[in-house]
Deep mutational scan, measured.
Amino acid sequence: GAYRMKIYDRDELRGQMSELTDDCISVQDRFHLTEIHSLNVLEGSWILYEMPNYRGRQYLLRPGEYRRFLDWGAPNAKVGSLRRVMD
């Protein structure tokens, strides 16, 4: 299947937008971000990790809009890595 997600540095799907279609071992290295404040999962399911290298707390992201970090259940906006959930 296809995988696509848009990430934003501000809440409510605002601010600088970056797009992912594959795994990202370090959000900071690739996008120069340490925080993601909202996101829109367009295709596929993903796991968001608090730390790089797929470590730390993890949150399942199904397709849909997440307008603030509380929407995916996190206590803050800190994001380290993102990985696709393969079928």
Rank of each mutant, 00 (worst) to 15 (best):
Y49K: 00
Q16H: 06
C24N: 06
C24K: 00
L33K: 14
L61V: 11
L60N: 15
D23G: 06
S81A: 03
R30P: 04
A2I: 15
H32M: 05
E65M: 13
G80W: 01
G56L: 00
A2R: 12
E43N: 10
S45V: 10
Q28A: 09
R62E: 14
L82T: 05
V85L: 06
L82W: 12
L33N: 08
M86T: 07
Q58C: 10
R57W: 03
L39K: 00
L61A: 09
D22R: 05
S81K: 00
M86D: 15
E12C: 08
I36P: 03
R4D: 13
W46D: 01
L39G: 02
S81D: 00
P63S: 08
F31N: 15
V41F: 11
R4V: 05
I36Y: 04
N53D: 12
S18R: 10
R10C: 08
L42N: 07
V27F: 12
F69D: 14
R10A: 08
L70A: 14
G80D: 00
L60V: 13
R67A: 10
I47D: 13
F69W: 06
V27P: 03
H32F: 08
N76T: 04
R67M: 06
L48V: 09
R4N: 15
V85R: 05
I7K: 00
N40H: 08
R62V: 05
K6F: 10
D87C: 04
A2Q: 09
R68W: 06
C24I: 15
D11F: 04
H37C: 05
E19V: 04
A77N: 08
E35H: 10
R62D: 06
L13A: 15
F31L: 10
G64A: 03
L42E: 10
I36M: 13
S26G: 13
S18G: 09
R84A: 09
Y8A: 06
G73K: 08
H37T: 13
M51E: 09
R83P: 03
K78T: 04
E12K: 14
Y54Q: 02
D71W: 08
G64Y: 02
Q16T: 07
D22V: 06
K6V: 06
N40I: 06
G80T: 00
L48R: 01
W72N: 00
P52W: 03
V79C: 09
Y59C: 12
R67W: 08
N40Q: 10
V85G: 09
Y3I: 15
S26F: 06
L48K: 00
N53Y: 05
Y8K: 01
T21C: 11
M17E: 09
N53S: 07
L82D: 02
I7V: 08
K78L: 08
C24Y: 14
I47C: 05
Q28F: 08
Y49V: 02
V27G: 03
V41E: 02
M86F: 15
K6T: 12
I7S: 02
I47W: 13
N40L: 10
L42D: 11
I25C: 13
Y54C: 12
R84M: 12
V27W: 14
R57I: 05
P75V: 05
Y8H: 15
I25P: 14
W72Q: 00
R68A: 11
L20P: 03
T34A: 07
C24M: 11
W72C: 02
D71L: 07
L20Q: 14
S26V: 14
F31S: 13
R83G: 02
G73T: 11
P52C: 06
L48A: 08
P75N: 05
M51N: 11
T34E: 11
R67E: 06
L39I: 15
N40P: 01
N40T: 09
C24P: 02
E12Y: 14
F69P: 11
C24H: 06
L39H: 01
G80V: 01
G56V: 00
W72P: 00
D87M: 12
R84H: 15
R10D: 15
Y66W: 10
R57H: 04
D87L: 03
R62S: 09
G44N: 02
L82I: 13
N76M: 12
G73M: 14
R4L: 08
Q58K: 06
F69Y: 12
D71Q: 04
P75I: 04
L13W: 09
G80L: 02
W46L: 01
H37N: 11
L82Q: 01
Y8V: 02
A74L: 09
R10M: 08
G15E: 12
L61Q: 02
H32V: 11
H32K: 15
D22L: 08
Y3C: 05
V41R: 01
L70C: 13
D11N: 06
N40V: 11
G44Y: 02
D29M: 10
Q28T: 06
P75S: 09
Q28E: 10
R57F: 04
S18D: 06
N40D: 13
E19Y: 13
W46R: 00
L42T: 06
R68V: 12
R4G: 12
R14S: 12
I47T: 04
R84P: 15
E50P: 02
D87N: 07
S81H: 00
H32P: 12
Y66M: 07
D87W: 02
L13N: 13
D87T: 11
G56K: 00
Y66H: 14
R10K: 15
D23P: 03
S18M: 09
D11V: 13
R14G: 05
I7Q: 01
L70V: 13
Y59V: 05
W46K: 02
Y49T: 02
L42F: 14
E35L: 04
R67Y: 04
D87G: 10
D22T: 06
E12G: 05
G15A: 10
V27R: 01
I47G: 01
I7W: 09
S38N: 02
R83Y: 03
F69I: 15
K78Q: 07
Y54P: 00
L70W: 06
E19L: 09
E65Y: 03
F31W: 14
E65V: 14
R30K: 12
M17V: 06
R55P: 01
A2G: 10
D9V: 09
R55Q: 15
F31G: 15
G73E: 11
S45E: 11
L20S: 13
R84I: 03
L48G: 03
L61P: 00
L61S: 01
T34S: 08
S38K: 02
T34Y: 08
D71H: 04
L20R: 01
Y49P: 01
Y8I: 01
D87P: 15
G44T: 00
G15W: 02
L48E: 02
M86P: 11
L20T: 11
G80I: 01
P52I: 03
L48S: 00
V41K: 00
A74R: 02
D29N: 12
I47F: 12
V27A: 13
R68E: 14
T34I: 05
S81P: 01
F69E: 12
L20A: 14
R68C: 12
D87H: 08
D11M: 12
I36H: 04
R30T: 07
Y49H: 01
I36R: 01
T34F: 07
I25G: 07
W72H: 00
V27Q: 00
V41A: 07
W46H: 00
L61N: 03
V27Y: 10
L60T: 06
G44E: 02
P63Q: 09
K6A: 11
I7P: 00
E35I: 07
I25D: 13
L82A: 07
L48H: 00
F31Q: 15
R62G: 10
T21I: 05
M5T: 14
P52R: 05
N53H: 09
S45C: 06
I25Q: 13
